[in-house]
């Protein structure tokens, strides 16, 4: 069987399996939507601490939160669980290339991130009337870079964790502070300078900023954040590949 046919079939099967996991779906699809709705409505529209309308600020930030939820909670658990339960070895003995499952999972993660982001955009638009992106092409390109970068971060975490439980623990532990401090929690001017400098070291902050800046026409335009995301993508793909090679040699 052609490697690409096998990959397409595996990706399709994995995508179907994700839609059979109600808890995963609830977390990656509905959690960002519910938070966007709540936060978009609690702040006074005249509050100028956001650099934009609060509903626009949170609506766009939660696209990043959705990407973070997929990359940090869904992908690592899926990868670690398959390795722990011997599903990966089964794929290998069935003649699938060692890269086939990671690539299929990456594809599923990208698709799920796009669906989750689309849900956030649709809901915010319907309820609060989300602003059009100031620079649409750049926003799309940066969002796609963020999605691929965070999906590969998820793969790297999944490949490093010994089992699904630790992958879930680490993923959740990383996700919550990242989304709270990175732009999905309190308004930016409510964060102390220390919190803000911690946030600068958190990858999810750069996802949110890389999308917010070109969309809401904020200072910086998102370029620096996009470059950091590319760096994260390169390092994490390298890590996952290295760990995969090491496991193969075992």
């Amino acid at each position: 069987m052609n490697s690409l046919t096998a990959l397409a079939r595996l990706t399709y099967t994995e995508l179907k399996l994700v839609f059979r996991e109600p808890l995963v779906l609830a977390f990656v699809l509905f959690f960002p939507v519910v938070f966007t709705l709540v936060l978009g409505g609690v702040f006074d529209p005249d509050d100028d601490g956001f650099g934009a309308l609060p509903s626009d600020y949170y609506g766009v930030a939660y696209i990043g939160v959705a990407i973070g939820a997929v990359g940090l909670t869904m992908v690592p658990v899926q990868f670690a669980a398959y390795r722990e339960r011997g599903v990966l070895r089964r794929f290998r003995t069935a003649g699938l290339k060692p890269w086939a499952f990671p690539v299929a999972l990456l594809a599923v993660s990208v698709l799920m991130s796009i669906v989750a982001a689309a849900l956030v955009i649709a809901t915010t638009t319907l309820v609060y009337g989300l602003a059009q992106p100031a620079n649409l092409p750049l926003t799309i390109v940066y969002a796609l870079i963020a999605i691929v970068s965070f999906s590969s971060l998820g793969l790297a975490i999944g490949s490093l964790m010994p089992n699904a439980r630790s992958a879930q623990g680490i993923g959740t532990l990383a996700f919550f502070p990242m989304f709270l401090l990175g732009g999905g929690g309190p308004p930016p001017d409510a964060l102390s300078p220390t919190m803000r400098s911690i946030a600068n070291w958190m990858p999810l902050t750069h996802v949110m900023r890389a999308i917010q800046e070109p969309w809401l026409d904020l200072d910086g335009g998102g370029t620096n954040h996009m470059l950091i995301l590319i760096a994260i993508g390169i390092v994490t793909v390298g890590t996952a590949t290295f760990v995969g090679q090491r496991d193969l040699a075992g």
């Binding site: 099967t13 399996l17 599903v87 070895r89 089964r90 003995t93 069935a94 003649g95 290339k97």
Partner: peptide
């Protein structure tokens, strides 16, 4: 030469499951 062996070799591995919902 794993690619050339695909399909010619079958395998039931110890401690190897399938995805629960498959």
């Amino acid at each position: 030469e794993a690619a050339k062996l695909a399909g010619r070799v079958g395998s039931q591995l110890q401690d190897s499951a399938l995805p629960d919902r498959l």
